[in-house]
C-alpha cells in the first residue's frame, strides 16, 4: 500500500501543479474585484497583455518563429477602434470587428513574403513592420492626431449597454482572456497544433512528412495577429485613449518579458507571465528608489531558477525529483 502511494503521489502533485496557474489566476481576479481601486487596473492590463502574449506564443512558442512586430497589429486594430468610434461615431463592437479584419488583411499581405525569411532575418523584417506602424501613427496626423493621440473613445458595449464600471471591465477581460487561452490550448492539442510544433522541431522533417511549412507558418502568424489586434482594441476601449506610445517598442519589450518569464511554448505561460510582470513592479513599491533595481533582480532570479518559465515550474520540480533524465 505504501509503495502504491509513493508511486502515484507525484502524478497527483503534477496534476495539481498543472492546475495551479489557473487557480491562482481566478483567485487573483476575485481578490482584485474585492479589493478594488488600483489593483483592478493593474490586473485588467495584465489580462489584455495575456491575450496579446497568448497570440505571440502561438507564433513563437508553438511554431518556433520570431516576431518583434506584433505591436503593429495591435496598433492597426486599436487605432481603427479609436478613429471609427471617436471620429465617426461607430458602435465600438463594429469598430473592433473592422479593426480585427484590417489587421488580419495586413498580416496576410505582410506575412506572405516575410515568412520566407528565417531566424534573424524574420526578426528584423517583423521589427520593421512594428516601426512602420508606429511611424504611420505619428505622421498621419489628419487621422491619428500624431503624438497627441485620440481621446474620448467609448467603452465596449452592445446597443446602449456599455461596460462602464472598472469591475465590469475586469470580469469581461477575464472572460475574454480565458477564451483566448482555451482556444490556444485547443489549437495546441490538434492536428494544426502538431503541425506547428513539428515546424518548431525540424522544418525538414515536417516537410518530409507532407506538412506545408509555409502555409502553417502563415496560419500561426495570422492567428497571432488576431490575438494582437484584439488586445489592441480592448486596450483602447478600456482606457478610452490611444497614442503611438501605447503600441510602441515598449509593448514588444514587455510582451517578450512576459512570454519568457511565464514560459514560452506552454499554454498557461502567457497568462501567468502577463499578470506577474504587471504585478511585479507594484509589489516592489515599498522599495521606493530601489523599485526598478528590485524588479530587475527579480527578473534575473526568475530566469535563472525557472529558465523555461513559471508555468513549467511543475516540470522543474519533477526533474528535481530525479524522474526526468536528460540524454
Amino acid at each position: 500500500m505504501t509503495n502504491l502511494r509513493i508511486t502515484t503521489s507525484p502524478d497527483r502533485v503534477r496534476a495539481l501543479l498543472r492546475l495551479l496557474p489557473g487557480a491562482i489566476g481566478i483567485a487573483l481576479v476575485a481578490y482584485a474585484l474585492l479589493a478594488g481601486g488600483y489593483l483592478i487596473s493593474v490586473v485588467s492590463f495584465g489580462l489584455i497583455y495575456a491575450i496579446f502574449v497568448t497570440g505571440l506564443n502561438l507564433f513563437m512558442g508553438y511554431t518556433g518563429q520570431v516576431s518583434f512586430g506584433q505591436n503593429a497589429f495591435a496598433a492597426i486594430s486599436g487605432y481603427a477602434s479609436a478613429i471609427l468610434t471617436a471620429t465617426y461615431g461607430w458602435e465600438p463592437l463594429l469598430a473592433t470587428a473592422t479593426g480585427l479584419a484590417g489587421a488580419l488583411a495586413v498580416a496576410l499581405v505582410v506575412g506572405y513574403p516575410t515568412l520566407r525569411l528565417k531566424g534573424h532575418y524574420l526578426a528584423m523584417a517583423t521589427l520593421a513592420i512594428g516601426l512602420i506602424a508606429y511611424e504611420v501613427a505619428v505622421q498621419w496626423q489628419s487621422v491619428t492626431q500624431g503624438y497627441m493621440g485620440i481621446s474620448g473613445v467609448p467603452p465596449l458595449g452592445i446597443a446602449g449597454f456599455e461596460i462602464t464600471s472598472e469591475r465590469g471591465n475586469l470580469l469581461f477581460l477575464a472572460a475574454i482572456a480565458a477564451l483566448g487561452v482555451t482556444a490556444a490550448a485547443l489549437i495546441r492539442h490538434s492536428r494544426v497544433g502538431r503541425a506547428m510544433a513539428a515546424i518548431a522541431g525540424s522544418e525538414d522533417a515536417a516537410r518530409a512528412l507532407g506538412i506545408d511549412v509555409a502555409r502553417y507558418k502563415l496560419l500561426a502568424f495570422l492567428i497571432a495577429a488576431v490575438y494582437a489586434a484584439l488586445a489592441g482594441s480592448l486596450f483602447v476601449h478600456v482606457v478610452g485613449f490611444v497614442s503611438p506610445e501605447v503600441f510602441g517598442l515598449h509593448m514588444v519589450n514587455l510582451a517578450f518579458t512576459m512570454l519568457y518569464v511565464g514560459g514560452i511554448g506552454t499554454v498557461m505561460g502567457p497568462l501567468v507571465g502577463a499578470v506577474v510582470i504587471m504585478l511585479l513592479p507594484e509589489t516592489f513599491r515599498a522599495f521606493k528608489d530601489y523599485q526598478d533595481l528590485a524588479y530587475g533582480a527579480a527578473l534575473i532570479l526568475l530566469l535563472i531558477y525557472a529558465p523555461r518559465g513559471l508555468a513549467s515550474l511543475a516540470d522543474l520540480l519533477r526533474r528535481r525529483a530525479g524522474e526526468g533524465r536528460r540524454a
Binding site: 492536428r191 502538431r194 503541425a195 510544433a197 513539428a198 525540424s202 525538414d204 518530409a208 507532407g210 506538412i211
Partner: peptide
C-alpha cells in the same frame, strides 16, 4: 530529425498529417 519538443507519441501522430484533415475550425 525528431521533433525534440514533442513526446514519442506526438512525433508519430505528426506522421498522420497527410491522412487527416482537421483544420483550425476542427481544432
Amino acid at each position: 530529425q525528431l521533433f525534440q519538443n514533442l513526446s514519442a507519441l506526438e512525433n508519430v501522430a505528426v506522421g498522420r498529417h497527410l491522412h487527416t484533415r482537421g483544420g483550425l475550425w476542427a481544432a
